[in-house]
Design a protein around this nucleic acid. Structure first.
Lengths: 337, 337
DNA sequence: CAGGGGCGTCGAAGCGCTTCGACAGCTTTT
DNA sequence: AAAAGCTGTCGAAGCGCTTCGACGCCCCTG
């Protein structure tokens, strides 16, 4: 293993000079710099991460806590993780992958050991156990998602309230009057992850303003469950012509059953989905949808942390404005026969 | 920040004693151990990762290189990543997330800097640029996937050859004679990732032995593309009654179009998928499938590395035997009318 | 009862790097 | 012409931990 000292010797300078060449924290003459860089290349030198971390009390690592469960939004999680990793690298940081399993202990461990300089927390619950710890440490962190109390925290998320509103607005503009919302599994609502409720609240509020009727049904299970759900929706509100789906697993069953019941999409009913673009594009009808801006959130989180670590930046909550992409699943409401 | 020295002082022992309590590398009397542990708890001590890494030249970190592209097997990647992270934790390791983007440079950086003690590499290509580096370092590594030359490397993967064979066997036993394989996108075959070819080879060999006809079609695109593909398959081999699908994106289009053409699954045609269980279960027909043992591979990789780091274990290639789960998409071949 | 051998503990020497103060040799200012 | 200020470099002090050799103590053996 090549050390700083060896590089210094090879270049005929002192160790500190090499260090300053590497960090750029003091000015170095062009000739010296070149000589050192040459030596580094020639010897194939890589600074030792541990020594660096010890001496500078900076690990150049950002911790990313992803949820353990793989039942929801997997592609989104993955996309965020990848965006975080690539963005971090462009700023000279590496990413440590933590699972939600350890919970608050992971936060304690990472902040306590100096393993990471900062932390990104995904899958935040409304009353998350990790929040007090994050507030109590001076290590910067960003939540992806929104807890009940955001005081003293930095958060990014899609503006799910606006998303819900945007979906009804789109349907209303097309002339739809009765709207059904196919939501996440009941467990998601019970877990109080927040985003599901926020969507619904935003959607309902806007629907009320626009004078639309809304029926909300959580969904879980297979085709049978969807058949049941649909049956009940049309029993209760036969005039339902607009659907908002916030549940990846519900997309195909919904489309298949509508087709099977002779309700054409988008001629008879319109469907708006809240899902990753990949899902929207791969569905059997290309879905008009509001995308989850996974990349954007990942990138923002890292950039915010880097700014904080460099002494810039401050706490705040950033809600990303939803964007609705019109595809083939929405159209004008059918005129009464 | 609490240091070892402070704990030592608080407990009235020397720093080295505290260190030995922590590592267990020398025997410590029960009373001393208790006193030290008590102090650790009371002061909320966490060993500093950098100092530890520097002094012991062990970072207790395993690097995981995941592919950058998110177009294929996303849930599998995610599952592996999570399995790796959780298994690593049970052995006292953390996981560093690297994307394939950096390629060989990432390998150099990690091995050179001592950032990680070992490395797991996913999405291995047949002639992967990273292989020479992995062979050339004394840092242990495990590949998830199989390159062309496995000499001097440790690899885990599903036995895709056997998987292909298993699929035809299942269909043959049910009386099917003509089989169509819906494969990955052409790009996957061109990229020579290996697994797709291996599946096909195993499948074809077994089909030849059993006297079955096989038609292979890569698939990419939407419903239209699938309609075209299916049309050509039935034109060329009207008697096709068995399908093997190795492409997550192809599953729903295939099922939808078969349904639409009046071919009932499994009464008229049988479908076997090679995909994660989640996909098989959520499809509109619960699919008979061979699962990708993501968790098992992740766990194996970590355990192998830990063994190596502890001086046990050796290089070898482990192919996990495929397991076929019968669900609702396969049945006896229809008898000729 | 002396000598040998565990066991449990300690002190000290680094691990490879960053960073602070010092200082030599300049240039600029007064 | 002396004082002041830069610029570029160096030496040395640590960062918090691991680990090796040393050593005191007690128990066992001959």
């Amino acid at each position: 293993m090549v050390t700083l000292a060896e590089v210094a010797q090879h270049a005929g300078v002192s160790a500190s000079t090499v260090s300053y060449v590497l960090s750029g924290k003091r000015s170095i003459s062009a000739t010296t710099r070149q000589r050192v860089e040459e030596s580094i290349r020639e010897l194939g030198y890589h600074p030792n991460a541990g020594a660096r971390a010890l001496a500078s009390s900076r690990s150049n690592i950002i911790a990313l806590m992803i949820p353990l469960r793989t039942d929801m939004y997997v592609p989104v999680m993955m996309e965020i993780a990848i965006a975080v990793a690539t963005t971090a690298r462009t700023h000279g940081y590496d990413v440590l992958l933590l699972t939600g399993e350890e919970g608050p202990d992971a936060v304690r461990r990472v902040t306590g050991s100096g393993l990471a300089d900062a932390m990104i927390v995904m899958d935040v619950e409304l009353e998350d156990e990790r929040l007090p710890l994050l507030r109590g440490t001076d290590q910067p962190s960003v939540l992806i998602g929104l807890p009940a109390d955001t005081g003293g925290l930095t958060c990014v998320d899609l503006d799910f309230g606006a998303t819900g509103a945007l979906c009804v607005e789109h349907l209303a503009r097309l002339g739809h009057h009765d709207i059904a919302v196919i939501g996440e599994a009941p467990a998601v609502y019970e877990r109080h992850t927040g985003f599901a409720e926020r969507t619904l609240d935003g959607l309902r509020a806007r629907a009320r303003e626009l004078g639309l009727g809304v029926l909300h049904r959580p969904y879980e299970g297979g085709y049978d469950a969807m058949a049941l759900t649909l049956g009940r929706i049309f029993d209760e509100r036969p005039g339902t012509t607009g659907f908002v789906v916030q549940n990846e697993a519900a997309v195909e069953p919904l489309l298949a059953l509508l087709r099977q019941q002779g309700r054409a999409v988008p001629e008879d009913v319109s469907v708006v989905a809240i899902c990753p673009d990949q899902v929207a594009v791969q569905a059997s009808v290309r879905l008009t949808s509001v995308a989850i801006p996974a990349q954007e959130m990942g990138r923002y989180a890292v950039e915010h942390l880097v700014a904080k670590l460099e002494g810039r930046g401050s706490d705040d909550v950033v809600l990303i404005a939803p964007e609705l992409t019109v595809r083939a699943s929405t159209g004008p409401a059918p005129t009464a026969p």
